[in-house]
């Protein structure tokens, strides 16, 4: 007798309903299956209309983020056997508008990533020409920001963040961590340019250090720490500006 388990999945088809519903599917239980395998099975064998994002199946592309029993996870990294025989509830990541079924609109996130200026910025006149060769960086300098470069843009951190859920103007964990990745890169000189986003009211100062972003991050980026460190450096800047106003201005 083949074992099965139930997946209760969020459905939303804007062309035929104005409110989402939940649909329960019965899938085979296999020891080595992850939630994504079960969802692919549903699409292949039961209901081809189920819509969702996925790609690499190995936790590096960041496409398959979903709420699994109310916790944001990569569906390719969650084993059915950890929930069997209980029912699993699957919803789109919290905090984002839903386009269809498990597909959410990520435009806001994409805008935030570009706003943070995620590239090496050099001061006027300090660009190295090709002839001058590459920017030299030691392993120790790399170690300082490497963790923040591991982000796969899966948005689990945004789904875990109650501040973002309440107010989507918040820059959010991944965007700020990405900003810090460049701020802490020894080759970069663009920290001041990024402060417009980072040190604003919608930036780090909205964060209340819940810490869930870091808890759910599949790549151990620790965006919460990135944000708190930005609070410290921004505060030091602020005091410098206030106490030493005659200092060098940009």
């Amino acid at each position: 007798m083949a074992e099965t388990m139930q997946l209760e999945i969020f459905r939303y088809r804007p062309e035929k309903e104005s409110e989402p519903t939940f649909q329960t599917f019965e899938v085979p239980f296999r020891e080595d299956w992850v939630v994504l395998d079960a969802i692919n099975h549903i699409k292949d064998e039961i209901d081809g209309t189920l819509s969702y994002r996925w790609s690499c199946q190995m936790g590096v592309c960041g496409s398959c983020g979903m709420m699994i029993n109310n916790v944001p996870k990569l569906s390719c990294a969650v084993f059915l056997k950890d929930y069997y025989p209980d029912k699993i509830r699957i919803e789109p990541l919290t905090g984002f508008p839903v386009e269809r079924d498990l597909i959410f609109e990520m435009d806001d996130f994409m805008t935030k990533l570009t706003d943070i200026q995620p590239y090496i910025i050099r001061k006027e006149g300090e660009e190295r020409s090709l002839e001058e060769g590459e920017y030299i960086q030691s392993p120790a300098e790399l170690a300082h920001f490497k963790q923040y470069s591991m982000c796969i843009n899966c948005m689990l951190c945004y789904a875990a963040c109650p501040v973002y859920a309440l107010d989507s103007t918040f820059a959010g964990p991944a965007a700020i961590a990405l900003g810090q990745r460049y701020n802490m890169d020894s080759r970069d000189q663009g920290r001041d340019a990024r402060q417009e986003v980072i040190a604003s009211h919608d930036g780090i100062w909205e964060c209340t250090f819940v810490g869930e972003c870091s808890a759910v991050c599949p790549k151990h980026v620790d965006p919460a720490a990135a944000i708190q460190r930005a609070k410290v450096s921004s505060t030091v800047d602020w005091f410098k500006d206030v106490l030493i106003p005659w200092g060098k201005k940009k």
């Binding site: 939303y12 804007p14 062309e15 104005s18 409110e19 989402p20 109310n70 916790v71 919290t94 508008p97 839903v98 386009e99 609109e105 109650p162 859920a165 309440l166 819940v210 810490g211 869930e212 808890a215």
Partner: peptide
Amino acid sequence: MSTYHRPVSNTWWLKRKTYILFM
């Protein structure tokens, strides 16, 4: 075709143990 905005309840923090501990 409209996107659906899920409402956020003010008792969001009761939904998970980590959120309760945070509160």
